[in-house]
């Protein structure tokens, strides 16, 4: 057969439809994703590296990047702690209504961000249910950077819970039983055995929560206040630059955010590899 000379990858396949499906897939991806991304990667450099650097280190831009990244880290940390507790409760405990609790976790994932945005803004405003209670203690959330943190915590929670949950469920109790027979108390077992075993999942969940939160827009802009230099997130800076027809500046910020996503993706892959090695 004439196919013998071809590299293995391109010989005739047993199943039909390879070239059609792969071809369509590549076409779709190239036109929708790769080409526009290319535009993003090229644009910031039209005035050279200096132009890029100036665009990115302008005070307002820097402040917005600091706010987006800083809040996302904090939100990921909060979501990791509470996500772990929620996953633990969902996997290890039995109680009426657990199914409902489980289903609710996906809410930030399914709810449109604008809906979440106006709801959170109303809730934490001085006249809102929560905002009014906090106001009595002099705490302001809405229209301050704290609002950004609250919105990010909301939006990223499912990423933490849903990453830890299956790992915890699969873990089995052998190791914990062994620890008990060796004389460990329940608390010792949890901290010395169970938690270290799910640490990779906790970190992965934190990374995914961060990635989601750092680029979030819709659920934040209503509650944030959007004051220049104080409570403007990076995606908002992009929108502002576009409205000013500063395509280059907008693209510069976009590239920074894309780089952050890329690094996060690498970190995640690294985490998976580390976890797999321990098996």
């Amino acid at each position: 057969m004439s196919a013998i000379g071809l590299p293995l990858a391109f010989r005739r396949r047993t199943l039909p439809g390879f070239s059609l499906s792969l071809g369509f897939t590549l076409f779709y991806l190239t036109s929708l994703v790769l080409v526009p991304l290319l535009a993003l990667l090229i644009r910031p450099w039209s005035l050279g590296f200096e132009g890029f650097w100036d665009a990115v280190t302008a005070p307002r831009v820097l402040a917005s990047l600091r706010l987006s990244f800083g809040s996302a880290i904090a939100a990921a940390a909060i979501d990791s702690v509470f996500g772990l507790i929620i996953a633990w409760v969902l996997v290890r405990y039995r109680f009426p209504g657990k199914g409902l609790l489980d289903a609710l976790i996906d809410l930030p994932f399914a709810l449109p961000t604008a809906v979440a945005g106006i709801a959170l803004s109303t809730l934490y405003a001085p006249s809102g249910w929560i905002g009014s209670i906090l106001a009595e203690y002099g705490i302001k959330i809405a229209y301050t950077p704290w609002g950004v943190l609250v919105a990010m915590t909301f939006i990223a929670l499912p990423f933490s819970v849903r990453t830890i949950q299956p790992v915890l469920a699969d873990m089995g109790k052998d190791a914990e039983e062994a620890a008990a027979t060796l004389g460990a108390t329940r608390l010792q077992t949890i901290f010395r055995v169970a938690l270290p075993m799910i640490l990779p999942a906790i970190l992965t969940g934190a990374a995914m929560a961060f990635a989601r939160a750092v680029g979030e827009y819709g659920s934040i802009i209503f509650i944030a206040g959007n004051m220049p230099g104080i409570s403007q997130i990076a995606p908002l800076m992009i929108v502002i630059k576009l409205e000013q027809y500063d395509y280059r500046g907008a693209a510069a910020i976009g590239v920074v955010m894309l780089a952050a996503s890329f690094i996060m993706l690498l970190a995640l892959n690294g985490l998976q590899a580390w976890a797999a090695k321990r098996r």
Partner: peptide, 24 residues
């Protein structure tokens, strides 16, 4: 590559089309 949109900010997703089809 297929997973990419999940890690990209929605604003960036809009931005790239502006960079391709926008006035500039």
């Amino acid at each position: 590559l297929i997973d990419l949109p999940f890690s990209v900010s929605p604003v960036v997703a809009g931005l790239i089309y502006v960079l391709v089809f926008g006035a500039q």
